[in-house]
Nucleic acid binder design. Structure first.
Lengths: 185, 185
DNA sequence: CCCGGATGAGACATTGACGTCTCACCCGAG
DNA sequence: CTCGGGTGAGACGTCAATGTCTCATCCGGG
């Protein structure tokens, strides 16, 4: 049995995003390793959470890059963003829910960078006249994370098919954000 | 100094919905009472959480009743629902985030009742042709809770004005749910 | 096959949070 | 003013989770 660091962190994120109170023993079990092994690789809860945060930020930023959210039509950019974000929704759910729990500068910085990029996309869409003006970019960012996290949990609980997650989030979020004659009234 | 049970529970819900790991000491401080007093009224964490859950379910059901979500135009019923839910968003955020943590039958039953009522409203809206067919009622219920919780946290963090919360949630959620020529394509 | 590194299981010490309790003080009613 | 109930502060005992460590076993490379 060898230690797959990334898979362990992924499993930990999934569990901790649902149960922040999970013990190290429970996390180890969920990840399929022994507590001693978990401890050898992450010497304490803080170290585990830091590693989770760092990897989550890294992967999310990679996905934002892959989605090229700064380019092209903002509506299509949001579609690409969600399509890229959903496979790392476990990490995003952890980061979104847990950034209140731990005060690590590098995670806060990373989260702020991601926030800024996503908010800039929403602002760009407003300036291009595609998105509603009356929903603030800050709220749209918050809503994006909340819906992605919710979709991750629905998939985890078997209430949504994994293949449907991106479409459900996209349709609901974009449907709400798009500027229409109705939304301008 | 007298003990305002409901205010203490409200403060506890606000804290616990953000930090499920908060200690009883931290909860007591957030509620402005001593740990001993908190303990006298809620003899342990379980008792506190049970009381939170029961009060949260009770108040949410009262709000659903007040919103009369089973009556009238489904679009207007969703508006009323959100307007009534936002003032208890702290409890809802707690219930939504924490029903994974504790296994109390009465809270689970209450949550299931609320879920069923809200899902029935979304189904009614679909049958009336007002809401999209391609977003499942289960997803819409999930999204509703996620957005209400997100709005509560935004208000708590000072990123949204309390007075804007209901409108932000309503506009985004309804905008995404309403059936339009575009959504039918 | 051998060897070395990694892992799992579990024993045991440590620790922070919790539970329990006491006492001084406060507050409101009579 | 007195009295009784409630509260805050804090001391102290308890305990589950964590940290530390050992040892047997496994696995992969040479």
């Amino acid at each position: 049995m060898s230690f797959d660091r990334e898979q362990v962190l992924r499993d930990a994120a999934d569990l901790l995003s649902r149960r922040a109170t999970a013990s190290m023993d429970e996390i180890a079990k969920a990840a399929g390793v022994s507590r001693a092994t978990l401890h050898r690789h992450f010497p304490g809860r803080d170290a585990l959470v830091r590693a989770l945060g760092v990897l989550g930020i890294e992967q999310t930023e990679e996905r934002l890059d892959a989605a090229r959210i700064e380019e092209g039509d903002p509506v299509e950019a949001v579609r690409r963003l969600i399509a890229e974000a959903v496979p790392v929704s476990g990490f995003l759910a952890f980061l979104y829910g847990e950034n209140q729990l731990y005060d690590f500068a590098e995670i806060n910085d990373g989260w702020a960078r991601i926030d800024a990029r996503v908010a800039a996309l929403f602002r760009r869409g407003q300036e291009a006249g595609a998105f509603r003006y009356d929903l603030t970019p800050a709220w749209l960012v918050e809503a994006l994370y909340a819906l992605i996290a919710a979709s991750a949990w629905s998939v985890q609980d078997g209430r949504m098919a994994r293949l449907d997650a991106a479409r459900m989030v996209t349709d609901l979020l974009l449907g709400g954000m798009l500027r229409t004659p109705r939304s301008d009234s």
